[in-house]
């Protein structure tokens, strides 16, 4: 294999170079979080500074952990519900014949084209009517019915779950729900992990919806809380960046842990020719 290795050097170099470029801003973010805001504008910071603790104090002083908890609650509940509903719906589309199935499926596909901002104005008013504007529900509810998830799950379940197993379990008197929980879910675990990761990420990073819906400080999520750091007269960039760096931790952990599953879960889904 030696000649191949030799010839592959440009490829290795390219990949390493691109990876470095991809990593640099992230690295810069980590470094910037250890300086005083004003120092950030005095040249490139490649080594850690001495103000990590001070910035940490600044962000803790605005009860950052409270907003962090809000974000966790929103992302976790939203994601669990959305993954479950996607799988359940995908299961029905993949393994059951029923009338208007095709029509309903195309309806779901079509809704993929609809930008989520389309209903934002109406959604604000709807939340008011429902009286749940002062809770985290407006951040959790939209998108639990996720067309992307259903599409994906339908493809995956159709390909990965053998119909025979379902049939024989049904013969033994298994109900549809038990079938789903005990047979389908374990088989499609890679896909569940994948959409869990992606849904969690999207919910965690959501900025526009909380921005326009949440006006009570106690309900702020991380992206909103960032603007509370510093004052009207001095934007504390360093502390903001620290807060944002800290906010990548949960998704970083999730993706590091699920990085192998990620590709596997994607494989049987949308990708089939």
């Amino acid at each position: 294999m030696a000649p191949r290795r030799y010839r592959a050097i440009p490829v290795y170099a390219a990949v390493v170079l691109v990876s470095l470029a991809a990593f640099f801003p992230f690295y810069a973010m980590l470094m910037m979080s250890t300086y005083v805001s004003e120092q950030l504008f005095t040249g490139v910071k490649l080594l850690p500074g001495a103000f990590l603790l001070q910035n940490l104090k600044t962000i803790l002083a605005i009860h950052y952990l409270h907003f962090y908890a809000n974000s966790l609650v929103v992302a976790a509940t939203h994601t669990v519900a959305a993954v479950f509903i996607s799988a359940l719906t995908g299961f029905a589309f993949a393994k059951y014949p029923f009338r208007h199935k095709k029509l309903l499926f195309y309806f779901i596909l079509g809704s993929l084209m609809v930008p989520p901002q389309l209903g934002l104005v109406g959604f604000v008013v709807e939340m008011k009517f429902l009286g749940i504007v002062n809770s985290l529900f407006p951040l959790i509810l939209p998108g639990i019915a996720n067309a992307f998830g259903v599409f994906w799950m339908t493809q995956y379940i159709a390909a990965a779950v053998p119909t025979e197993i379902l049939e024989s379990a049904k013969m033994d008197g298994c109900t549809a729900l038990r079938l789903f929980l005990q047979i389908v879910l374990p088989i499609i675990r890679p896909a569940l992990v994948t959409i869990f990761l992606l849904f969690f990420l999207w919910s965690w990073n959501n900025y526009l919806t909380p921005l326009v819906i949440i006006s009570r400080e106690a309900l702020y999520t991380v992206p909103l809380a960032i603007s509370m750091i510093g004052s009207e007269y001095r934007t504390d960039y360093a502390a903001r960046i620290l807060a944002l760096a800290v906010s990548t931790i949960p998704v970083l952990i999730l993706f590091a842990a699920g990085s192998k599953q990620l590709i596997r879960g994607l494989t049987a889904g949308s990708i089939k020719g």
């Binding site: 604000v124 504007v133 326009v212 819906i213 006006s215 603007s227």
Partner: peptide, 21 residues
């Protein structure tokens, strides 16, 4: 409640439209 000056309009708009807070 901390609301930056440039966010005041939008926060008021949401609060008034949702009728609370």
């Amino acid at each position: 409640t901390i609301v930056q000056s440039q966010d005041m309009e939008q926060k008021l708009q949401t609060a008034l439209a949702s009728g609370s807070d």
